[in-house]
Amino acid sequence: MTYLKKSPWLLHYDASSCNGCDIEVLACLTPLYDVERFGIINTGNPKHADVFVVTGGVNEQNREVIRNIYEQMPEPKVVVAVGICAASGGVFRECSNISGGIDQLIPVDVYVPGCAARPESIIDGIVKSLEILEEKRIQMKERAKQKEQGRSPGGGER
């Protein structure tokens, strides 16, 4: 089934952004943009989330936090890097404490451009990520099936 596409739950984390993208992510939830139309909810809890929305680049302190949150999300999951900072570090690329985009740490599926990214493009990015989410779900299911076959006595060697 394709329930995943109809009910993606977000988790937003501000890695080291200037707030511009963050408030635009929030603005998506509010009456003008209202992403709940598409079933999108901001959960605030990695264990419930499907889509990890990261803004801002990686620095020393949040490195482990991002990885930790990513690991606590159940499969299938996608990462959307919102804003130019999350993609490459953006204007802060050369700052003393920034080591670049999110993709150094975790696999990013969709990059949303902009400084700050506009709500329209953020929504677009998330909708794009849903296709990938669906693909990942199918892969996950196949993996599980293979594992199952591997375990059953007639299913070949382990």
């Binding site: 089934m1 329930y3 995943l4 109809k6 009910s7 079933g39 499907d50 159940p74 499969e75």
Partner: peptide, 11 residues
């Protein structure tokens, strides 16, 4: 949809 999705997710 939400419940359907949750059932598809990893535990």
């Amino acid at each position: 949809y939400d419940v359907g999705k949750l059932l598809e997710k990893e535990n």
